[in-house]
Nucleic acid binder design. Structure first.
Lengths: 336, 336
DNA sequence: CGTCCGTGGGTGAGCGCTCACACCGACACG
DNA sequence: CGTGTCGGTGTGAGCGCTCACCCACGGACG
């Protein structure tokens, strides 16, 4: 039975029913060792009988811990950010943290400031920021957060601000894998279609490609993250001349390229090889199936939560990177 | 300047600095009319000077409103659920609600129960559940939540439980649009590749297709939501015989079909037309570009939040549906 | 000139919990 | 047989806010 909606049962109600003090109930709830088993039993029964749930607001008020993490993420259904969010939530729940989300349309300083204030006002224990731009990092540096903040990013140049940490998948490494793979397949002329250069991830993928290509690297092309951008670019390339291979900064760009090439009768990988980044759902079923770089978002989430937790406990937090993994499919394998 | 991390400033600190009582500070914060402008000014200045932020835990404790909404969503980067989440968050923020998320791997009663308890323990003001299965609805019916719950679903058979509401995009209508479009194009033999039938959305898309096809409808095929399922099915169809058109329950299934057909040299739409559902990012760039059904997730989020708000305020909540929209692309247009 | 009411503001209680500490009996030890 | 120690439990304060209520003052009104 539910009791009437008047007031949910409080600790004192449980205590009264079990014939103990509120403090003993608290001890039972918090697994304090020194409670006699039979007392514990009686309390547990009273809790069940009343349908008692402890009031987390009261708890937060006195402990100054809300048990909530704030996550800032772009307001899109992009594969990377979304998967990161899921990974984060699962990792957070394992260690008993709730995840509160705020989406933002643009990663400028103002939006960021608003989002952070939003979370700080709520009293979160830590904040994670997914897919940040350089501008974001500056905005964060300016706000002097009383709680730890982690940037989900492989950026090497995160400003050295106290309480600001960074974890990420090693984008540069992933980019090297992709580029090297294309070279190994015998495609000498590997062009990079880069993502928006204010995104850390896009910067790093570009850098990784450059590292492998060395000083003789051709010019890269800059684009957005969307398939439409890749499509436009693909049409232009088909018109103006094709490289032997293209490393696209994400799978959507690659998809757009594939579309344009298919439409123009350019064969992949025969006429031009294509590699993406992300291994999004469905990449295995593009036309042709797309070689790409996979990131372990579960591990990423765990790493982010770990470092937030360490920072929260006042420990030192080491910067950490997760390696990426190449997934080879038909779009980049040299025809026999 | 930050003051030392000892204790964040409280209302009384602001009051002392401004030379008023804590109550006046509260009035300023809550926009109470009867405060003299100059007093208001003084308080505002003190707030700024101390970097004061009101403690939401204390506020929640006394008002019994946490200002937080719980959202349960599947632990995947699927386009539909993700977009819904984003839509919900934006709508919630507009009316001043935070969004806390819990992802679940399986929509069985147990996971659902855990997630709900998780939120109720946190004291959320309302709960939204994205992409529910029939089993979920039963689990919710069993839990007697003290706060309103909204199922994001177009299901017509949501159990009539108090505090349980439902909003959704009209899946059935969308399916009718897709099917009718194929018939209008002259494809008589429209087969449906259905999603998992324990999902409300999958049920409704199937039902919509059936409505249009009438009693002479062919058998539908049941599958999961993934491209891999579509791919397998596509291979089988290419082997065992093709219908004139296929209406797939989502874009990923359609993508898998396209992949299989391309691999087997089956031309789309010449040999078989294909229509999907969702209009996910990239669907415009599949091979060929995919005809599909688009849902307005922003409107969906607003609707969900509205109904939660109405329920929270004790008003009556009418069931509401949002229409879907057909997006015609090359995959379903009869060749001239 | 007393009464009434509205404006601007203060006072105190209490939301439900945890933390620090007091207490009490039992048992060990010198 | 006094003194220490320790398991098991209770007491009271207080976290930072809102809510209900009270108070002072001034102008309007009969």
């Amino acid at each position: 039975m539910m009791n009437s909606a008047a007031r949910p049962p409080a600790m004192s109600d449980v205590a009264a029913l079990a014939g103990v003090s509120h403090q003993t109930v608290s001890r039972v709830l918090n697994d304090h060792p020194s409670v006699r088993p039979e007392t514990r039993e009686r309390v547990a029964e009273a809790i069940l009988q009343l349908g008692y749930r402890r009031n987390s607001a009261a708890r937060t008020l006195v402990t100054r811990r809300s048990g909530t993490l704030g996550v800032v993420t772009p307001a899109t259904a992009l594969y990377g950010p979304t998967s990161t969010l899921v990974g984060l939530e699962e990792a957070a729940r394992v260690v008993g943290w709730f995840v509160s989300v705020a989406t933002i349309r643009q990663f400028d300083g103002d939006s960021m400031h608003t989002a952070l204030e939003h979370f700080l006002g709520q009293g979160v224990d830590g904040i994670a920021i997914i897919a940040p731009t350089t501008e974001v990092a500056q905005a964060i540096a300016a706000i002097a957060s009383p709680v730890p903040v982690v940037l989900i990013s492989s950026a090497s140049d995160v400003p050295p601000v106290p309480h600001l940490h960074a974890v990420g998948v090693d984008q540069r490494h992933g980019a090297r894998l992709a580029t090297q793979h294309l070279l190994d397949q015998g495609f000498a002329d590997v062009v990079h279609v880069a993502g928006p250069q204010d995104w850390f991830d896009a910067q790093d993928r570009l850098a990784g490609w450059r590292e492998v290509m060395g000083p003789g690297a051709p010019e890269h092309v800059e684009a957005g993250w969307d398939a439409a951008d890749g499509y436009e670019l693909g049409l232009r390339m088909a018109r103006e001349g094709l490289p032997s291979a293209i490393f696209a900064a994400n799978d959507q760009l690659a998809l757009g390229l594939l579309h344009a090439f298919w439409e123009r009768g350019v064969r992949v990988p025969d006429d031009v090889a294509v590699v993406g980044f992300d291994d999004e759902v469905g990449a295995a079923h593009y036309t042709p199936p797309l070689t790409t770089v996979r990131q372990d978002f579960g591990a990423l989430g765990r790493l982010a939560v770990d470092s937030l937790q360490a920072a929260f406990d006042g420990k030192d937090v080491a910067r950490q990177q997760i390696p990426a993994e190449l997934v080879v499919r038909a779009s980049s394998v040299r025809p026999a």
